[in-house]
Design a protein around this nucleic acid. Structure first.
Lengths: 144, 144
DNA sequence: CCGTTACGATTACATTTGTAATTCTAACAT
DNA sequence: ATGTTAGAATTACAAATGTAATCGTAACGG
């Protein structure tokens, strides 16, 4: 029953604003986005409309304009796209790729402590190795 | 000078095969992919041609068929898409999202040890907190 | 009440992507 | 040399995506 909610990169920009503000109007979104990307107001309106159409946002009329609110939670949506990514790459390479990401991003001390805890627990049941699953069937000699 | 190499999900399936086999023919790719997805041979040929066009694969004629080889490294390409993802989400939420991923995926003991090492080094210079950067400019009150 | 006007809704259109059928051409067999 | 044929190239086409102009309508001001 996983929502197949597909949010495109352009739409994602809009969602971030709505997620952060909790509720907002199209005007506010347009103003904020103009500091970041070069989109015409009509473009943002289109994105808002598509997001409403796909059930990511709700609108309620408020006088002349509409109030937009997220219908999907930010964290679970982020988790979903992250899962999609890590499920689409070679299973053998997941660890290496994660390591690269951890190396690149900014993490708070609390973030790091939590990751350390998660890893510690994971180590107990971790397999010796993780096989490449890129070529299904056959026991092809994997180059990895 | 980052390659703006865009590989679509369908193309990615093809790349995984070529990356794993190192070099191969269209026939081999078609056969292998048929165990996984329901694509006609012509579809795979199209994807191969597009990948050659965008510089992800090379071909050299070998008798009647062509040999396909990757022109881009698998790990660096995976790193790039992972970076793209984590750069596109709220910076404040990166740690939480990474934690979710680590929790979900399968990691080898070696993978985990390496991550632990990376985290340990990172902790030394880690900031207390990471601010949400979803709404540029203003000091908007962030809900996160 | 009625005209403005600020919004959302409708329409538009090029590009990319997924999916494939058809055509062309060069390799191999004779 | 020549016909077959396997495989690449060309062409096709609908859906999704990025980007936007214009149209219609309801809300507010007078």
């Amino acid at each position: 029953m996983t929502k197949g909610l597909e949010i495109t990169p352009a739409e994602w920009q809009v969602m971030r604003i709505v997620w952060t503000l909790g509720e907002t109007t199209s005007n506010q979104i347009i103003t904020i986005l103009q500091r970041k990307v070069d989109w015409k107001p009509a473009t943002v309106k289109t994105l808002l409309r598509r997001l409403v159409a796909k059930g990511a946002l709700s609108t309620t009329r408020q006088g002349r304009s509409f109030i937009y609110r997220p219908l999907v939670a930010e964290q679970s949506t982020m988790n979903q796209v992250a899962d999609d990514l890590f499920n689409s790459i070679c299973e053998h390479c997941v660890g290496q790729t994660l390591n690269h990401v951890v190396d690149q991003v900014t993490l708070s001390q609390k973030d790091i402590k939590r990751l350390q805890q998660t890893l510690k627990e994971k180590l107990a049941t971790a397999p010796e190795t993780v096989q490449c699953n890129c070529v299904p069937g056959e026991n092809v000699h994997c180059q990895h």
